[in-house]
Amino acid sequence: MRHPLVMGNWKLNGNKAMVSDLIKGLDNALAGVEGVDVAIAPPVMYLDLAQQLLGKAQNKIVLGAQNVDVNASGAFTGDISPEMLKDFGATHIIIGHSERREYHKESDEFVAQKFAFLKEQGLTPVLCIGESEAQNEAGETVEVCARQLDAVIKTQGVEALLGAVIAYEPIWAIGTGKAATAEQAQEIHAAIRAHIASFSQNVAEQVVIQYGGSVKAGNAAELFAMPDIDGALVGGAALDAEGFAAIAKAAADAKK
Results as ranks from 00 to 15, higher is better:
Lys60Val: 11
Ala220Tyr: 01
Ala237Glu: 13
Ala112Trp: 04
Glu183Val: 15
Trp172Leu: 00
Gln210Ser: 10
Gln113Ala: 13
Leu118Glu: 09
Gly25Phe: 09
Ala225Leu: 14
Phe115Ser: 00
Ala220Glu: 03
His104Pro: 04
Glu242Asn: 15
Glu137Arg: 13
Thr124Arg: 10
Thr155Arg: 13
Glu205Val: 03
Pro125Ile: 04
Gly218Pro: 06
Ile174Arg: 00
Asn67Ile: 05
Arg100Pro: 03
Val203Thr: 11
Lys105Gly: 03
Ala248Thr: 08
Ile188Leu: 15
Gln121Thr: 11
Gly96Val: 05
Ala241Val: 11
Ala232Ser: 12
Gln121Lys: 15
Tyr168Pro: 04
Val158Pro: 10
Phe88Thr: 05
Ser198Gln: 04
His92Asn: 15
Gly231Trp: 01
Ile166Phe: 09
Glu183His: 13
Ser20Asn: 14
Tyr211Leu: 00
Asp69Asn: 12
Leu233Met: 11
Glu205Tyr: 02
Leu5Glu: 10
Thr77Phe: 10
Arg101Gln: 02
Leu162Asn: 13
Gly89Lys: 04
Leu22Met: 14
Leu47Lys: 05
Lys255Ile: 13
Leu12Phe: 13
Glu137Cys: 00
Ala248Cys: 15
Met1Glu: 13
Gln206Asp: 06
Glu120Met: 05
Phe117Ile: 04
Arg193Phe: 09
Ala116Cys: 03
Lys154Ile: 02
Ala146Met: 05
Glu106Thr: 06
Ala116Ser: 11
Lys86Val: 01
Pro227Cys: 07
Asn28Ala: 15
Glu133Trp: 05
Trp172Met: 00
Gly32Ala: 13
Ala250Gly: 08
Ile40Cys: 08
Asp37Ala: 12
Gln210Phe: 08
Asp27Arg: 08
Ala39Lys: 07
Gln66His: 08
Asn13Cys: 09
Ala194Lys: 08
Pro4Arg: 02
Glu143Tyr: 00
Asp240Asn: 15
Trp10Met: 02
Tyr46Val: 04
Cys128Tyr: 06
Asp79Ser: 14
Leu149Asp: 00
Ser132Lys: 04
Pro125Phe: 06
Asn13Glu: 06
Val234Trp: 01
Glu137Leu: 14
Met45Asn: 07
Ala173Glu: 01
Val126Lys: 02
Gln148Met: 05
Gly64Phe: 08
Thr141Gln: 12
Lys11Phe: 12
Ile80Lys: 02
Gln186Glu: 14
Leu53Gly: 12
Val111Gln: 02
Gln184Phe: 12
Lys178Tyr: 00
Asn13Lys: 09
Asp230Met: 03
Cys145Ile: 01
Thr141Phe: 11
Ile171Leu: 09
Leu233Gly: 06
Ala167Tyr: 12
Val207His: 00
Met84Asp: 05
His3Cys: 12
Val44Asn: 10
Gln186Thr: 09
Ala221Phe: 05
Leu239Tyr: 08
Met226Gly: 09
Glu99Val: 01
Ala246Asp: 13
Ala90Cys: 12
Gly130Phe: 05
Ser20Pro: 00
Ile40Met: 11
